[in-house]
Simulated assay, not measured.
Amino acid sequence: MRIFEVIRWGNDSGDPLTGGANGPDTCFLVRADTVEEAARLADVRLAALPHQRVSPWSHAVYLLGDDLASREAPLILRGPYIQSAYCHGWRQWHRNERNDPWVEKPSPDAAA
Rank of each mutant, 00 (worst) to 15 (best):
A48I: 05
V54Q: 02
A32M: 11
S13K: 07
F28N: 09
C27N: 14
E36Y: 02
A32L: 11
A32Q: 10
D66T: 14
R40W: 11
G79E: 10
F4W: 08
V44D: 09
D15N: 15
A60I: 07
P80C: 09
R40C: 09
T18F: 13
P80Y: 02
F4L: 06
L17P: 00
A39L: 04
H51D: 04
G19P: 04
G20A: 10
F4N: 05
D66S: 13
L49V: 05
C27L: 13
I82H: 08
L46T: 02
T18S: 15
E72A: 15
S13T: 12
C27Y: 01
A48K: 04
L64E: 12
A73D: 15
D15V: 01
V44Y: 06
N11Y: 11
A21L: 06
R31S: 13
F4M: 00
E72H: 13
G20I: 07
A32I: 08
I7Q: 11
A38W: 02
S13A: 15
F4A: 10
T18D: 13
D25W: 06
L77V: 14
R53M: 14
E72F: 12
H59V: 05
T26H: 06
L29S: 11
S58Q: 07
V44W: 07
A73M: 14
V61N: 02
A32R: 05
V6G: 02
C27F: 08
V35Y: 13
G19L: 10
L75H: 14
R45S: 07
D66H: 14
V6T: 01
P74L: 10
R8D: 11
L46R: 02
I82W: 03
L64S: 09
D33M: 09
A73W: 13
A48H: 08
D67A: 13
G65W: 10
D67I: 05
H59T: 09
E5Y: 08
F4R: 11
V61Y: 01
G23K: 02
D67Q: 10
L41S: 04
G19I: 04
H59K: 06
A69S: 14
P24C: 00
V30W: 05
F4S: 04
Y81I: 00
N11A: 01
L46G: 03
A32C: 06
A73Q: 15
A48E: 15
L77S: 07
A42S: 07
P74E: 13
P80G: 03
A69I: 01
R53K: 15
E72M: 10
R40N: 08
F4D: 11
R8L: 06
V44M: 00
R40T: 11
T34K: 08
G79T: 02
S70R: 09
A69N: 14
W57P: 10
R71L: 13
S58T: 09
G19K: 06
G79W: 05
G20K: 03
L46Y: 10
I7H: 03
A73S: 15
A48V: 08
P24M: 12
G10A: 03
H59I: 05
A69H: 13
T26S: 09
L49F: 04
S84C: 02
P24F: 01
V30K: 06
G20E: 11
V44R: 05
L29H: 03
E37R: 00
V54N: 00
S84Q: 12
L68D: 13
C27G: 04
R45H: 04
E37I: 04
N11R: 01
L46H: 09
P50C: 03
E36F: 04
H59G: 11
